[in-house]
Simulated assay, not measured.
Amino acid sequence: MTGFKNGGLNGGLNGGLNGGLSSGPLGGRSWSGGSSSSLVPFSPPLKTGDDATGELMFFNNPDLEFPKSAWSPALRAQVIVGEFAASDWRTDLTTTDYRERSAGFHSQTPGTPTGLRGELLTLINFRNNIRQEMANEIAVQVDGSQLYWSNAFMIGIENKPNSSILVAVAMAVGQLVGMHFKDYWKRARPIQFCPALMPIIPTPPHPSYPSGHALQAYLVKHLLSAAARASAGDALHDYFSNFAERIANNREIAGVHFPTDKLESADLAAQVWEHHLRELPSVQELIANAWGEWEHNLVPGDFKNPVMAEGPESFADQIAIKLRGL
């Protein structure tokens, strides 16, 4: 009976969590604010005709269109994914070896990592010393990393509609590109080399390299930085960067990714942004329209202290400090 209890509990928790997230700021909710599956009671029926003529009353406007502003961000993003998929991204990134033209190039060969022992030791250190502290955050980010962006930066369809779509585009394009290269490299998961890692979440049913969550997070960073016209050294840009790093690092702490999976994702996201996403007319339009959603965040002189302007402390530095104190 224990198995049935655990299955029911896990299923209920996962279903509730996933359902709640999918109807959240970037999910498939209705334009009116409720879930797309919300019941709207309406009884008795509204009068639909003119008492004198008996004719049906309606808005006789053949040019009426569904407004862009009423789209669900997640669904609008699918239209842009189609535009992206029609480009030459797959051929370009696969045949020209994007790693060699990336500023963050690393020499790790997927599937046969020369530093396998060192990477596994890093993951074991995470398991032993940091994992429990990050457990709740890791669990929610399995299916809801976009929730962290929307919550921290107040990105919602009501107040930042264009930015909401940009986040959804990053999530959708990141998944498409990530799955292509996972299939291309076919890198084994950490637990296949070291079962004692025992990830705190189920190991995803697809290859390890690159990290999909990291790729999505880095794409969000690039798109939002462009929308907010924030460059390196700006407070907002540094916050975006640190959020992306945190989400990426959590996948290593969870035990489901190697550190080099994250490095690959950072390189790949930069190439996808620089050579493909930023060239799409639909993305350019969203970025231009999104500027008005961020300009109030970038008033010169807001941060008098340079330390404050750098944003939150680097997550990697936090980990290093914690490990040094052991």
Rank of each mutant, 00 (worst) to 15 (best):
N136P: 03
L147T: 14
A135D: 14
N125G: 01
L147M: 13
I130T: 14
P161D: 10
A168F: 14
R131H: 13
I165E: 05
E158F: 11
A168V: 07
V142G: 03
I157Q: 11
N159K: 09
S150M: 02
G156M: 03
Y148F: 11
L166R: 11
V142E: 09
D143M: 10
V142N: 06
N125A: 03
Y148H: 04
F126Y: 12
A168C: 07
Q146A: 06
G118C: 09
V140S: 12
M134R: 15
Q141D: 15
V140D: 12
I155S: 00
N125R: 02
E133G: 09
L121I: 06
G118A: 08
F153K: 01
L166Q: 14
G144H: 14
Q146E: 14
W149M: 03
R127Q: 11
F126M: 00
I130E: 09
V142T: 15
N136W: 15
Y148N: 06
G156H: 04
S163D: 12
F153R: 00
E119A: 13
A168D: 05
N125M: 01
N125V: 00
M154C: 05
L123D: 04
E133T: 14
E158D: 15
G144I: 05
S145A: 12
N136F: 10
L147E: 09
F126H: 08
E158Y: 07
A168I: 05
E133Y: 08
G118P: 15
M134C: 08
Q141N: 14
L147P: 04
A152Y: 11
S164I: 04
V142P: 01
N162S: 09
F153P: 12
R127M: 06
N128W: 04
I130Q: 11
I130A: 09
N129I: 01
W149L: 03
L123C: 02
I138Y: 06
N151C: 00
D143K: 15
V142D: 05
N159T: 04
N128A: 08
N162E: 11
V167P: 09
S145W: 07
E158C: 06
I124W: 08
A152W: 08
R131I: 02
Q146M: 06
F153A: 02
E137Q: 11
E158L: 14
A152E: 14
F153M: 06
R131V: 03
I155A: 00
F126A: 01
N125S: 03
Q132D: 15
I155C: 02
L121W: 04
N151F: 05
N159S: 12
N162T: 06
I155T: 04
V140K: 14
S150P: 15
S150H: 03
I138R: 04
